[in-house]
Amino acid sequence: MEKIFQKLSLSSASLVFVLLIGIFITLYTAAKPAIDEFGFDFVTNPDWNKEVSLNPTSLTDTVVDMEEDSLDGEIIDEDDMEIADEDDDAILDEDEDDMMLDDEDDAVTKTIYGGLVPIIGTLLTTLIALAFALPIAMGIAVFLAEIAPKNIANVVGIAIELLAAIPSIIFGMWGLYYFAPIISDLFGGYQVSLLTAGLVLGVMVLPFMAAITRDSMNTTPNVLKESAYALGATKFEVIKDIIFPFSKVGIIGSIILALGRALGETMAVAFLIGSIFVLPQKITDPTISIPVAMANNFGEASGLGESALFYLALILFIISFAIISIAKFYFLKKAN
């Protein structure tokens, strides 16, 4: 009995290991066709689902432009065209499709996928979110740890944690219908944009960041603080010169952890980023992020398109794995 119990708990623990390795291998295997096809150029290529016809005779690539934002555009037009071309000789008289009589008779077409737009979109929304959330989260943490009387700190602390408990899809809906209109009135541009998505994401990571920062600040020994106060330091000086240096490592850890969380957030961003595969020119332009690209296109994707989405998932997984590891094992371990 003892043995069985021990074995059971050991295998459950090993399950974590197996799952992580399994996720990695599965993503890699599913992404393999796209990796083989596009290699590392995938990361720098801004075209998603673009039809490229390779003409074997002239060796020049003719790019047949497609509406980049409509993924279900597929290649129907192209098919029609080829059929029309084949039938040309027979029905040359009724030629309503003159303009298609290019030299593309034997054109081989392929669809290319590049991940640059969602990668940029992910990084920029995360950056905006952090820039917005960081000062406010620090302020909240200072308030909770140092300023507020105990009972107020408790109530506010619970309220902030409730903000963290609200499902992300709620942030998305609220952001789209109530927050984004105000932001776009203030800054101009579209209601769905990098900026609005980043700011709502910022509101989402705010409580998370504030809570860990507060916990780090609370580890400062009272003796240190009291000696500084005894020397006549103001609260600001104590925070700046005693608490902050003491808990610096932990605070940096909490910021990086919030970063990892923001990178992978799907639903709040899905409502607000606009979901088009176009590189943004301004901060108020719509674009797309990796999780949103997956959420919106996974259902319809197949073949190489699906594999490209897995490639994106793999990139996201590796980035967040790296970021979280750095935060947990370097900064937060050192902090304790």
Binding site: L27, L257, S320
Partner: peptide, 19 residues
């Protein structure tokens, strides 16, 4: 195992969906 489980706690949920 403890560290890996910590990492998994913050793994993007959409990636778990894809897995």
């Amino acid at each position: 195992i403890r560290d890996l489980s910590d990492i998994m706690m913050s793994a993007p949920s959409i990636v778990i969906g894809a897995f």
